[in-house]
Amino acid sequence: MKLNELSDEDLMLSYRDGSAAAFDVLYARHKGGLYRYVLRQLNNRQDIAAELFQDVWMKLINARLNYQASAKFTTWLYHLAHNRLVDYWRSEKHRKHQVEFEETTEAQVADSTIDNQHSEPHNELLQKQMHQQIKQAIAELPEEQRSAILLKEEAALSLAEIAQVTGVNRETVKSRLRYGIKRLQGILHPLRSVS
């Protein structure tokens, strides 16, 4: 059986037993989702996101010998990421970057709008603006709601798995998702008419 056909759990077990190639496949599968999850949670701060993303994988590499395939691999991976983010938010650094983020995103949106007005067709500009709005809207959500939505979108976790990662019960996750989508409705309604 090829490595690509193996499940995440089997790949992790192979890596634990000394197969570096298994890790390559596993990393290729999850690097995008995990990176975006961290990035969105950090309000699109790429430098910190990259640092935290690397920390999460390093933690996984160091903990490989203790890995047991009792839980879903994705749940374990995102649980590590969630814990790392919580640690980060607890640090003082976070507050400083929160302020910086608000300034930079506003500037970025303005810049891209100006650039795109000159170089690209009107539709593409609208699309980009919409994407930017979604990103921004997600970034502005309360941390719990944002986390629930991102885990659903990026990791495709079920309610129970999100509950496991964030350490709350299933009903709480459900209400967080519902409130999160409600808050995004302001942005989603104009998008609905466009789509």
Binding site: G32, Y35, R36, M130, I134, K135, E154, S195
Partner: peptide, 15 residues
């Protein structure tokens, strides 16, 4: 809608 739009723009990858 959120899912569609989010997935469209979810292209960022780590350095």
């Amino acid at each position: 809608i959120l899912h569609e739009k989010y997935q469209d723009e979810a292209t960022e990858l780590p350095p």
